[in-house]
Simulated assay, not measured.
Amino acid sequence: MTRKFLDEAYSYLGKGVQTLYDDWADTYEAEVGKNGYVTPTRCARLLAAHIADALAPVLDVGCGTGLSGLALRAEGIKTIDGMDLSAQMLDKARAKNIYRTLTQISDADPLPFETGDYAVIAAIGVIGPGAAPLELFDTLLGKLAAGGLFVLSFNDHALQDPAYAARISDCVDKGTARVLEQEHGPHLPARNINSTAYIIEKL
């Protein structure tokens, strides 16, 4: 019987995530595709409305097998770098030939780029239970220069915890960011799971 990783993913709480996604790499796209995974397309569409320069570099954090990169490219975004914990997922992304660079990162080390290196940072389907911790939101927002854009999503599992939406509200209240777009819609329709997509501007 084929292992169903979606049945396991949301039970991971930060430990073992790299191993989970390494093991999932060969069947990831088939499994999420069967469940109608649409969040990358939704996020890319919202982002495209706010990008003035299609050549501006975009960093796709947690790029996985490259589904988010494909969605960004389909919206006319030309320069995309990807980073992920999983070497096996990065191999799948590399085969798509859509990324300028692909880098394996570690959750134990600082992210290997400087503040302001990217005009846009994407974390699509990345932050939440079974994936990256909420603290990554602060790290990535902090890596943007003023005027930079952050596109991300929180699925229903994340939004069950009020801390996720509160993290964005806190930044708005403090004047460090503003929400340009916020759209709740399908995530994995076959499982009746939705997500909220956000376009955030660093102030």
Rank of each mutant, 00 (worst) to 15 (best):
M1N: 07
R3H: 14
Y10D: 02
S11P: 03
K15S: 12
K15F: 15
K15I: 11
Q18F: 11
L20R: 04
D22S: 03
D23T: 05
D26M: 15
A30C: 07
E31M: 10
G33M: 13
V38H: 03
T39S: 10
T41I: 15
R42Y: 10
R42K: 08
C43Q: 00
A44N: 09
R45N: 15
L46R: 07
D53P: 15
D53F: 11
A56W: 02
P57I: 06
G64D: 05
S68H: 04
S68D: 05
G69Y: 05
A71D: 00
A71G: 07
L72R: 04
L72D: 04
L72Q: 08
G76T: 05
G76P: 00
I77W: 06
I80E: 01
D81P: 08
G82D: 09
L85M: 04
S86N: 07
S86L: 00
A87F: 09
Q88D: 11
Q88T: 13
M89S: 00
M89L: 07
L90G: 03
D91Q: 12
D91T: 14
A95R: 11
K96T: 11
K96A: 07
I98H: 05
R100P: 05
T101F: 03
T101G: 07
L102K: 00
T103A: 07
Q104K: 05
D107R: 06
D107F: 13
A108T: 12
A108M: 15
P110G: 02
P110D: 10
L111P: 01
L111Y: 12
L111F: 10
P112Q: 01
T115W: 02
T115R: 03
G116I: 02
D117R: 11
A119D: 04
V120R: 08
I121F: 09
I121A: 08
A122W: 08
A123H: 01
G125Y: 00
I127F: 08
I127S: 06
G128A: 11
G128K: 01
P129I: 10
G130D: 00
A131F: 15
A131H: 14
A132Q: 06
P133Y: 10
L134Y: 06
E135H: 07
E135R: 15
L136M: 13
F137L: 06
T139H: 15
T139L: 14
L141D: 04
G142L: 12
K143H: 09
A145T: 10
A146C: 04
L149M: 03
V151L: 01
V151S: 01
F154W: 09
N155G: 04
N155C: 08
H157P: 06
A158M: 03
D161L: 14
P162C: 04
A163S: 14
A163P: 13
R167Q: 04
R167G: 08
I168Y: 01
S169G: 03
S169P: 06
D170G: 10
D170E: 14
C171I: 08
C171N: 06
V172W: 10
G175P: 05
G175Y: 13
G175N: 11
A177N: 10
R178F: 12
V179G: 05
V179S: 02
V179R: 04
E183D: 12
H184G: 11
H184E: 11
P186G: 13
R191Y: 10
N192W: 02
N194C: 14
I199W: 03
I199R: 06
I200D: 02
